[in-house]
Structures are given as C-alpha cells and as structure tokens.
Design a protein around this nucleic acid. Structure first.
Lengths: 133, 133
DNA sequence: TTGCAATCTTTACAAATGTAGAGTATTCTC
DNA sequence: GAGAATACTCTACATTTGTAAAGATTGCAA
C-alpha cells in the first residue's frame, strides 16, 4: 500500500541494482558483482544487505543453508523517490521548473530534443483522449 | 574552478536556502528564518553552518563582533549537483531516460506539457543557430 | 559599572553509515 | 572423517549527521 519515500544512499543504490539484476540472489553473488566497481569485502556487503532488510528495502528467504535476497522496492519506485527527493529539496517541489532546468542546463543533442518532443506529443495525445486532467 | 559535486543533505539544503535569501547574514538570522519549518535551536543551526564552512559550502567574514555567512555555491550549482546525483544513481548517468521517466511517471497537465514543448522548440532553434552539438 | 541581551565557542552524545576482521557452521571432496 | 571451501554471524570501530546544552564574550543601557 503505502507510497513511501525510499531514500537510498549511494551504497544502497549499488547494492539494490545488483539485486535487481540477479534476484533472487545470495550475498556472495552481489559481492562478486560489485567487486570491480566498489571494493567491498564480503562482510561489508553482507552487513549492508542485512541493514537494508531491516529498513525494508530487501527481504530474505532461506533456501536450505543459503540466504536469498529479493528487493522489496522496484526500480521504478526507487527512481521515483530519488526524483521526488530532488524536486523537493532543490526545486521547492515543483516539477516543471525542474524540467525546465534540465533543458536549460544540460546540453542535449538535437536527437535527444527530437526524442523528447516526440514523447511529449505522445503524452499530449494520450492525455487528451483519456479526459484531460 | 573545479566543477565539484556538492552533495547537500536535507538539512544543509534548508540552511543554504536561507543563506541565499539573506546573504550575507548572521547565524541568528538563519535560525529565525527556519524556526517555523524546522525546529532548530540556535546551537543546532550554528553548528551546521560551521560544518558547512568546513566543507566549503559556506564562507564567513567577520564584521566587528558579528560573523557573517555567505554561500560559496550558487543555487544553480547546487541544483545541478542534485540532479546529477540522481541521474548517476538512478539512471545510470543518462539524462534522456530520466527525462522520459519524468514524462511517463508524473501526471503533467496539458498546460505543463505545452510549456515544455515550447521550451524544447526554443532550445531546438537556438541549438541549430549556434552550430549543432 | 554593572548587569543584561545577543552572539559565539566548546563539548557532547546518539543514530546512521561505511567498512571489515574473526570466528562459526556447513558442506564438499578426497 | 578430516581438511578445504563457502557462507554466515557477531562484534567493532571510525566518520558523518542531527541535535543541543552550558559556558564564555562582548557591547549596550541604566
């Protein structure tokens, strides 16, 4: 139910990404997966994962002598939270100014602009069809 | 020079916003400004501000027996960092997917969509004029 | 000049986060 | 069945963040 706000730290993001991609998976898998980017030992990874279970970001299930982890929040949910956090903190909660800022402050290629325009058009049509909001 | 990445915490955002709006200003001013929203005592605010000086987010200047604070990073810089952080963590560094996500996952009104389209058009033209990138 | 008001300084402490060693249990493998 | 390999548990410690009380300064007002 609850549309909670999941504020993941940098490290938690790294971990949950690995989980999303291997789900369900054991801690060693995650550790190996991250070994190159992050330089974490098994202990480190495991500790973090267990803390994430406590926080309700992951959940576990025992399979014989193995402990398998699964994500509780989806990638979409996490992305949404991350964006909402930014909008709240840095743009006073207003989405359009943030979009505008993105357009103004990041050099997008023509191609990207086209793509965006296309997306907006699509959105627009759909919105109209479905009874405007 | 350095185009550093400023990762402000929630509290730091609150403080620096107050500073931006009153710059240069003394700690008590900031504390009063935030009194309603946050419920921080003077000590709390002062401590945080001094820590932010250490971190290079604010700087001070002594005026007789007063200590005045100024921001070191601009609102734009901070917003940019905040967005970059999100893009990096949650969208694998790619801006367009993030924009797409924004369009897909947040119900924008027709008006907002129009506005965005207009902005993009403007961008497009300007980009073309200035030798495409 | 004495005391009050405003401001600053010092110190503290708890919770969260980053990081991991050392020991324990379980399971292969020879 | 004994040692090696694998995975888990427990404990620990440093740093950062959130929060603030208590004490020291200083300038002004009576």
């Amino acid at each position: 139910m609850a549309k909670k706000n999941y504020e993941l730290t940098e490290s938690e993001w790294a971990i949950i990404q690995a989980v999303w991609e291997n789900e369900p998976c054991a801690a060693p898998t995650v550790q190996e997966e991250l070994e190159t980017r992050k330089n974490w030992t098994y202990s480190t990874v495991k500790t973090m994962m267990d803390r994430m279970v406590t926080k309700g970001l992951l959940k576990t299930e025992r399979m014989r002598n193995l402990i398998l982890y699964r994500s509780v929040v989806t990638r979409i949910q996490a992305q949404k939270s991350e964006i909402m956090r930014t909008v709240k903190r840095a743009f006073d909660g207003a989405l359009t100014p943030m979009m505008q800022f993105l357009l103004d402050n990041h050099k997008l290629s023509q191609k990207q602009l086209n793509e965006l325009e296309r997306l907006i058009k699509k959105k627009r049509v759909k919105g109209r069809a479905a009874g405007k909001k």
